[in-house]
Design a protein around this nucleic acid. Structure first.
Lengths: 344, 344
DNA sequence: TTGAAAGCGCTAACAA
DNA sequence: TTGTTAGCGCTTTCAA
């Protein structure tokens, strides 16, 4: 095992003090008026022998780890996976590491993760907060840590936040269905009280209300697994036969829902049933028919989040006001919402 | 900002020395014959005031971070995402943290990541190695770090390894296609020379050879993006019209391939074309028809990997021989490989 | 312009 | 059975 090089080794070899080497390594050569000649010699040697400072010691001393904690609801969900990857990429370029975790929207788990991140001394927190962690997050903020919320807001947490215009997104999708001639539009969502879910529901209701149509909402319990969810959706469709279109509140519900629908119609989607999903999914354009969806701007979300975080992490920047960034969605019209043939 | 508690605060409050507290906290109370009474009082106070040792200081002192570095080819691929999640879960239970990264199968990037992990002082490495990092990985091993390879082997790296029986998997899928009456079976793979890919190719060839059938292999360059891949696959199908079945070497190639096929047949899969994929995918059972696939035992892979790693991490265990664990795959027969109607 | 030395918070060898 | 103390490797104040 090659012995790890120390800063003292570098200093010794060049017959200078540790301090000098440290200053040079930390870009303070100019500031400390260290001769260009010496600066260069130090840098050259460091390069040559491949010296790398011990980050643990650095962090212990400075209190900074150049690490950002990223907690999303479920890293295996393509929406979050994409955002995470984009954030990681940028963070990495800026010399930050990302550690991520899935909250599974469980408040206890989230609290534990926050506490784990604190123990790891991450410099900042990016969180999709579940309900019930208000206090813990507020504490982080009070303790001076940069915190950026993503995807949803939680009443009682006052900090920077990047979300999507869920209401308009759901409104537009519903309006589109109505324009295509559908009259009995169901909304399949979860029973979670997350802000983004409530806003989608509201968008749906608002669109219907404008045309005096009746809402038909199915709330599938959040904890249901795939099979239970499937069953629930199936029985919903059985009970409410008049439905001629359905808007799913998330992409994974849409996937389950499509499975459910195909139980009734092994031939594929019935021609007279309109289907749309909030949140796009890679496979929607593979299915027959391709599925109309409300796409969320993952790239823009990731960019705003990481920019905000980097800004907050920079000690030069005064602590700014907690601002909420709301990004627009895009309705991608595919083949699952054709014009409905009206029988006179 | 609440002042962070130190071990000295605990010691002071109880009028004992720091050492005593440290011993108790590290489970050495018995060993050091510290009175049960004192032990209890210390634990109680620690609990009450919520004291948590500074991990940075601990790590600096002990040289251990209780962190495992996990590098997979692409964390947004469901196969790796699943393995990662399972590994993380177990690691977490055992008091280890996981930091993950995607290599994108790029050797330079992987080298950088390895070096980043070294800087972070991770205790062990779990890697899906790209070609060209043999030296760097060997160096890790020589330096005494536990290294477990997953999904593929690389000649020149001698360490523990968990892989899947790729050859049999591809062989079985191909054999199944032949049994169903297909005669001109294409194999769509990448040009990557990764061991698992070569083994799949070999399994395919072996099955064909036994029936004296001719192979028809398309190698799509690994660096191609989705669009380029699509185009390549499309032109392959155009050039080789006699093909009556195709086995895709990975799930993402299958997804692209299915898109390609649907360009010819907007109605869906042609009834006379058999399709199977190595590596299962959530959506395969959603598509019409559902897609036959070779499922890899993600759970078993994850379990073996983490068990191996935890074993290696335990200083009590003597360094054992580098063993390779080969796990079986499972052929899931769905509707995309129906018995071929032979026209006499 | 450079160096000596005091910690950051903890572990553990050694002493008592 | 418990306490004293020397580091782990680095940054940075203060002194020269």
């Amino acid at each position: 095992m090659k012995k790890k090089l120390l800063i003292s080794d570098i200093a010794k070899q060049l017959n200078v003090s540790i301090t000098t080497v440290s200053f040079i390594l930390n870009g303070k050569a100019k500031e400390k008026r260290i001769s260009d000649d010496l600066t260069e010699r130090v840098q050259k040697l460091v390069e040559e022998v491949g010296y790398r400072p011990n980050q643990l010691a650095q962090s212990l001393r400075t209190g900074k780890t150049r690490t950002i904690g990223l907690m999303v609801e479920d890293i295996s969900n393509p929406f979050f996976a994409n955002i995470a990857r984009l954030i990681e990429e940028r963070a990495y370029q800026e010399g930050y590491k990302i550690v991520y975790c899935s909250t599974e929207d469980d408040s206890d788990r989230t609290k534990e993760l926050i506490s784990m991140f604190r123990d790891m001394h991450v410099d900042g927190y990016i969180i999709t907060p579940p309900q019930g962690v208000e206090e813990d997050v507020e504490k982080l903020i009070k303790d001076g840590f940069p915190v950026v919320l993503v995807d949803r807001q939680v009443a009682g947490i006052h900090t920077h936040c990047v979300i999507v215009d869920n209401l308009s997104g759901a409104y537009n999708a519903t309006a589109h269905l109505m324009e295509q001639g559908y009259q009995n539009i169901a909304f399949v969502t979860t029973d979670s009280r997350q802000s983004q879910m409530l806003q989608r529901l509201e968008g749906y209701r608002k669109a219907l209300a404008e045309k005096q149509l009746e809402p038909a909402v199915l709330e599938v319990p959040y904890r249901y697994d795939a099979k239970q969810m499937l069953r629930k959706i199936v029985s919903f469709f059985e009970e409410t036969e008049s439905i001629d279109a359905v808007l799913f509140a998330t992409n994974y519900m849409a996937v389950r829902g499509l499975e459910a629908i195909s139980q009734f119609n092994p031939q594929g989607l019935p021609a007279n049933l309109g289907v749309a999903s909030y949140d796009d999914h890679d496979v929607f354009k593979l299915l027959k028919p391709t599925i109309t969806a409300v796409a969320q701007p993952t790239e823009a979300i990731a960019n705003h989040v990481i920019n905000l975080m980097l800004h907050l992490l920079n000690p030069k920047n005064k602590t700014s006001e907690a601002d909420t960034i709301v990004l627009p969605t895009q309705l991608i019209i595919r083949n699952s919402t054709p014009r409905k043939e009206v029988v006179a």
